[in-house]
């Protein structure tokens, strides 16, 4: 499964779960998240997230 991880704090974005409390519905693709979005845990910009494959 493809996920996206913050380089600073390790927060992982799961597309299936989205971030409903941030206004990002479940199922939102990573590409659909605005470029000015920042990590909810530490404020790191979207550009500093890496794609990682989880089992």
């Amino acid at each position: 499964m493809k996920t996206w991880q913050c380089r600073t704090c390790g927060f992982i974005y799961f597309e299936a779960e989205g971030l409903p409390e941030e206004g990002i519905p479940a199922g939102t693709k990573w590409e659909e998240i605005p470029d000015d979005w920042i990590c909810p845990m530490c404020g790191t910009p979207k550009v500093d997230f890496d794609m990682i494959e989880l089992d």
Partner: peptide
């Protein structure tokens, strides 16, 4: 819930050992 505390800090200096 939610519980977005700042106990680990935030930003570039956020706690390295939080996980």
């Amino acid at each position: 819930s939610p519980n977005k505390h700042v106990a680990f800090g935030y930003g570039a200096h956020v706690c390295l050992g939080q996980h």
